[in-house]
Design a protein around this nucleic acid. Structure first.
Length: 702
RNA sequence: GGGCGCAUAGCUCAACGGCAGAGCGACCGCCUUACACGCGGUAGGUUCUAGGUUCAAAUCCUAGUGCGCCCACCA
């Protein structure tokens, strides 16, 4: 009886040791796993950004992936869970810039090369913190295969992918109004915006008609852009303005003649039904401008200041200063009809929260039409299944209304666009989209397929079995991985896409680091242990439903650990030292009449028979539930069996009427079932009752 | 503006057409030799509201209220 059993279970005494044991065994690596293992089971980790540390949502994701991997490993699959991190372009550039700002340095002071060195330093430090956090929660990833989205091989792969599209004619350069962040100095995709309601105003401005004393009144939230107006537009069905279409107005301040045109996209019910058209600073206006062959006048530049086209009076002013100046001027000319309060959504950069300035700019685009079709078909046909199914809708809605993907970014940290004379980098999601196959060796592996006796990773593990992530990146990442996999490999990157619960704060708000509402899983692990943390997360995240964070379940997990610990202690007390071999596992025949092992049915009491039957059922149920990704249900079932059926009833019974063999084997089987969920404590106890194998690779079926 | 999700015990959540459950907390007994991170017991619910379908509704339908999320070019 080891003395450590004399105290309550203390995870700190065991977890690091156990993790080291697993790592040294080599069994995280599928190539080192014993046995035949014809079937494979693979997951590529959703690579966390190297921007900082993980939160409790990641921990849930990693705990559930680890349940699957450990379960399948014990079931005899050749299991690979491939880890890594993402360079996360703008996000990482931003945090490093912030860090430098504390020292009073900007990235421009350093210059591109020196700045990138700093980012690499950051990556080295924080990339490792993230991976260490994963180890703490017990993730059984194959660390020998760890990848980073900027590894040299990865850079080659991104180049290959880009050029593949380029040769197909799907990459083109276009000058368009894009979402421009005036702080980060880069374009952003629609998916990289966040909207925030602000108390704005709606200004009603009188535009004088040419050769007339009359006005047409337009409504706008952005009066400063009027300096770049090249038309006024109304709906063709709008009777109020029918006789004005085709006439001209004299644009105030600029004294420029601009036409009144009609366009069906104009909403009659908004404002006055007449709209100023500024093709250089609004996406809809740009389209209207293109359809009506209007010129585009850029009056705001990429740093958010007025250009010479805005007129001498305004040139060099910041956008908001210009707004005041323009309004003052209009006021003095008595051209403001009225001002309404108008709360509306303002687009902001999702990384730095600066207002987005729609701006005309030369960017690289990837044609999406064919790729979107591929992605739609893969899910429609059932090759890829969403869990829960309803998330498909988010995916289809986006793909069906897809716009070409602006893949260029004007930042420094990222994959360079592999064309001569272009110093832009690629959208970070362009490289993430290739993750499931580049991490398995594409494109090099794809070229060396023929004639090899040993299969390479891509052949062996692609398509992966399941991917799990938060609903927030269904389109940003999942959709793009799906069409990339289909385009480059000819097969979807995974079979199942599991959208897990989003963990909200107790009062239902999104967890956010900046708001200080995030919870660090490492704090929980320190306080309660990794198994308890895993237990709490899985226990609470029953289905795909959002959950309000609640630490009580982690408390329950800690208590459960102690319960298991003490049950093991009791069983060890009932078994004389040196009789480790008695902890065999029941065989199929043990559950059947006529079985002749000493655990056998015929030898057992009714209590023995009952617990063996309950064990058999529990094991079956748990296997079925894990395969359905119902981890919470599986854990509840297991908890009920271990605590109530085994400890409360059978253990008590065995105090009166001991069958040491049955007692020991039920403990052994319980540990196996517990292992995917609570790997540390189960492995620790296993070490005391069995000296042949480590539990991690014990056979589930037995 | 459109779409989706949620509303069940004090709190966090199960149950998805057939007697409403768990964890945490509360209360009352117990240091019963595995475990007080425990054991035994108790209290606590008109399942958001109003209708409807059904022999039967927390569960299905309709409308409403509240909360959360996503999408969208009403400037």
């Amino acid at each position: 009886m080891p003395s450590e059993f004399d105290k309550p279970y203390d995870p700190k005494e065991h977890e690091d040791k156990i993790y080291k044991l697993w790592e040294e065994s080599g069994f995280f690596n599928p190539d080192k796993l014993p046995g035949g293992r014809g079937k494979t089971f693979s997951i590529t980790l959703a690579p966390p950004n190297v921007t900082g540390s993980l939160h409790v949502g990641h921990a849930l994701e990693h705990a559930t992936s680890d349940v699957l991997i450990r379960f399948k490993r014990m079931q005899g699959y050749k299991t690979l869970w491939l880890p890594g991190t993402d360079h996360a372009g703008i996000a990482t550039q931003n945090v490093v810039e912030k860090e430098l700002k504390k020292q009073g340095i900007s990235r421009h002071d350093l210059g591109r090369e020196k700045f990138l060195e700093k980012v690499w330093e950051w990556k080295k430090k924080y990339g490792n913190i993230i991976l260490d956090q994963m180890k703490k929660i017990g993730a059984s990833c194959d660390w020998t295969r760890t990848r980073f989205t900027m590894d040299p091989e990865y850079q080659e792969a991104v180049k290959e992918a880009f050029l593949h599209y380029y040769k197909k004619g799907w990459i083109y350069q276009g000058e368009r109004v894009v979402n421009w962040c005036i702080k980060d100095q880069t374009s952003l995709s629609d998916l990289e915006l966040e909207y925030q309601e602000e108390k704005g105003k709606l200004w009603f401005i009188k535009y004088p008609l040419k050769n007339s004393k009359e006005f047409i009144i337009i409504a706008t939230t952005r009066p400063e852009t009027m300096l770049g107006d090249t038309a006024v537009a109304v709906n063709p069905k709008d009777k109020r303005y029918k006789n004005l279409v085709g006439k001209k107005v004299l644009l105030p301040i600029q004294n420029r003649e601009i036409p009144i045109i009609s366009d069906r996209r104009i909403e009659m019910n908004f404002g006055t039904g007449a709209v100023k058209v500024t093709p250089a600073h609004d996406m809809l206006d740009e389209q209207i401008g293109a359809d009506n062959k209007l010129p585009a006048l850029q009056v705001i530049n990429e740093i958010g200041k007025m250009t010479s086209a805005a007129g001498q009076k305004f040139e060099g002013m910041k956008m908001l200063e210009a707004r005041e100046a323009v309004l003052k001027e209009l006021e003095s000319q008595n051209l403001i009809e009225k001002i309404d309060d108008y709360p509306h959504n303002i687009a902001k950069c999702y990384r730095c929260e600066t207002h987005i300035e729609p701006l005309r700019s030369k960017q690289w685009f990837l044609k999406m039409e064919e790729l979107a079709k591929l992605a739609i078909k893969a899910v429609k046909s059932g090759k890829i299944k969403f869990h829960p199914k309803r998330w498909e809708k988010i995916y289809f809605d986006w793909l069906k209304n897809i716009k070409d993907w602006c893949v260029s970014r004007q930042i420094w940290w990222g994959h360079k666009i592999p064309l001569d004379g272009v110093d832009d980098v690629l959208d970070t999601w362009f490289s993430s989209a290739l993750w499931p196959f580049v991490t398995l060796g594409w494109p090099a592996s794809a070229k060396t397929l023929a004639g090899k006796s040993k299969k390479n990773d891509l052949e062996t593990f692609y398509p992966t079995d399941i991917l799990t992530n938060d609903r927030g990146i269904i389109n940003l990442w999942d959709a793009r991985m799906i069409f990339s996999g289909l385009e480059f490999i000819g097969a979807p990157p995974f079979k199942d896409l599991l959208i897990h619960a989003t963990i909200l704060t107790k009062d239902g708000k999104r967890m956010s680091k900046s708001l200080g509402t995030g919870i660090d899983p490492v704090d929980l692990i320190t306080k309660y242990g990794a198994d308890a943390t895993r237990f709490g997360l899985i226990w609470q995240a029953m289905g795909g439903q959002d959950i309000h964070w609640s630490e009580e379940h982690v408390v329950a997990g800690r208590k459960f650990c102690n319960k298991i610990w003490n049950a093991a202690r009791f069983v060890l007390q009932q078994t004389p030292p040196g009789k480790k071999s008695d902890f065999g596992t029941p065989k199929k025949s043990d559950f059947e009449e006529g079985g002749n092992s000493k655990l056998g049915f015929d030898y057992a009491s009714s209590a023995d028979k009952k617990i063996l039957a309950q064990l058999k059922k529990t094991k079956k149920d748990i296997g079925r539930l894990i395969d359905k990704y119902e981890f919470g249900q599986a854990l509840h079932t297991l908890y009920n069996f271990v605590w109530h059926d085994f400890c409360d009833i059978y253990l008590e019974e065995s105090k009166k009427n001991l069958n040491a063999e049955v007692l020991a084997s039920v403990l052994a089987e319980s540990l196996k079932m517990l292992h995917p969920f609570m790997p540390f404590i189960s492995e620790t106890i296993w070490g005391h009752i069995n000296n042949k194998n480590i539990l991690m690779i014990e056979s589930w079926a037995s």
